[in-house]
């Protein structure tokens, strides 16, 4: 990932800042510039998601790319946030702990490191909300 792209996405990655259509109330993450329902009648504004949600579905990954190999086996989940939008994220828990419908909350973690001398990408992951 280029430095510029990471920097551009910091609000989303750190604070789950998406967008909301003030006309229909739908929340979008990643942010959308235009509401797909209201089109030109929609009014899009920034919207910070609470970070609370539940597991919609998940996979346990035992084979990972080099950058995530230290984490395996790890859980990748589609999480439905309170605001109704969905986000794909690492879920930090034991593979045997996760289940569909599990309440989760966001935490701040390292997403990736570009080797030993590159940028450290920080962002949001999720943990069980006990």
């Amino acid at each position: 990932m280029t430095v510029a792209r990471f920097w551009r996405e910091i609000p989303q990655r750190y604070n789950l800042v998406g967008t909301k259509c003030e006309v229909c109330g739908d929340v979008f993450f990643p942010p959308r510039a235009i509401c797909p329902h209201c089109r030109r009648d929609g009014k899009i504004v920034p919207c910070q998601c609470s970070g609370k949600g539940k597991v919609l579905t998940y996979s346990v990954l035992s084979a990972a790319s080099d950058q995530f190999s230290a984490l395996k086996p790890y859980v990748l989940a589609i999480i439905e946030l309170e605001e109704g939008t969905r986000v794909t994220s690492h879920l930090i828990c034991e593979p045997e702990e996760v289940h569909i419908g599990m309440p989760v909350k966001s935490v701040f973690r390292v997403l990736d490191r570009e080797g030993s001398d590159g940028i450290i990408h920080y962002g949001t992951k999720f943990v069980p909300d006990l």
Binding site: I92, F108, R109
Partner: peptide, 16 residues
């Protein structure tokens, strides 16, 4: 620490 934790992540979690 976990693999994906460091001083910055501790600091953010504590501040939040």
């Amino acid at each position: 620490p976990d693999y994906d934790e460091n001083t910055a992540t501790f600091s953010v979690e504590a501040a939040r």
